[in-house]
Design a protein around this nucleic acid. Structure first.
Ligand SMILES: [Mn+2]
Ligand SMILES: [Mn+2]
Ligand SMILES: [Zn+2]
Ligand SMILES: [Zn+2]
Lengths: 140, 140
DNA sequence: CCTAATTTGCAACTAAGTTGCAAATATTTT
DNA sequence: AAAATATTTGCAACTTAGTTGCAAATTAGG
């Protein structure tokens, strides 16, 4: 079963020079299919049959983050969210919008965020992430 | 001991129509004195003599957030950070910069972030928060 | 295949944050 | 000022996200 997605995931791992293991392929595929950021438990759930220890999933996410394939999303929840970096530019991620009424979070892929300058009083800025809050279309 | 700070804190609580209790005054004073965002344990520590239960501090923070005196800061850590809202505009908070090398986080109070539009495809945007990542002056 | 490097699962642990409830305290009313 | 009411507090028990160390399993590469 070498699906298209499967090959893509393996490809991504290979070019990031990461060991190509079942767990990593699975996690990556889950993130590729997802339409937003996921928590470790959501990823585990989507791996279905092929169960992996949560420690493995966390470590897998760490390695994916380290090579830049995945980003942590800054969503206010107790748990951490991860998503693919492929919808973000090198220095800027798409914003996440959280509704004050229903609590749902949306990825605003198509919103353009004005970038800040790369340098500010000695700070070298390498990534900019934006969190938005307000009312979603359903609640506004 | 009605310090200046003390009066200010009481004043803030009163105008937010919150019960003016020792805990709230203390937490508020801690945040007023702080130069950045604090976690509950850091606040507890700064309350020193007057010990409060952590549950109380969390609930106090919740009430302060609800009335808008305090904001949650979006800093990647296992714990939640809180800071006064008084350095933020109604719709935008100052950015937090986290160094990829030393891990320290700085409040960039003087950095101007271009604001996004108030509406985007049905989303009503009421607050914008920015997280920056890169190298701090010491590590650059 | 064989070897070395890396990843994985397990089990035990740490610690942040939550909940319910009775006692304490703050505000309002009489 | 005292009583009545509304709100906050502490405690203790709990939930659950995330971490750590280590031995066993898996991968890459010759
Ligand atoms: Mn997203
Ligand atoms: Mn700040
Ligand atoms: Zn909503
Ligand atoms: Zn630094």
């Amino acid at each position: 079963m070498k699906s298209d997605l499967d090959l893509k995931a393996r490809q991504m791992l290979k070019s990031a020079r990461l060991y190509c293991t079942a767990g990593r392929v699975g996690v990556l595929k889950a993130l590729l299919k997802a339409d937003g950021a996921l928590r470790q438990d959501q990823i585990a759930e989507r791996l279905g049959k092929k169960r992996f220890d949560k420690v493995t999933i966390y470590r897998t996410l760490d390695s994916l983050v380290k090579v830049g394939l995945v980003h942590k999303a800054y969503i206010e929840e107790r748990a951490r969210y991860f998503e693919l970096a492929h919808n973000c530019s090198e220095t800027q991620c798409h914003p996440h919008f959280t509704c004050r009424n229903c609590g749902r979070t949306h990825c605003l892929m198509d919103m353009t965020i004005p970038g800040v300058k790369k340098r500010h009083k000695g700070f070298l800025i390498q990534r900019q992430q934006t969190r938005l809050e307000g009312l979603c279309p359903a609640c506004a």
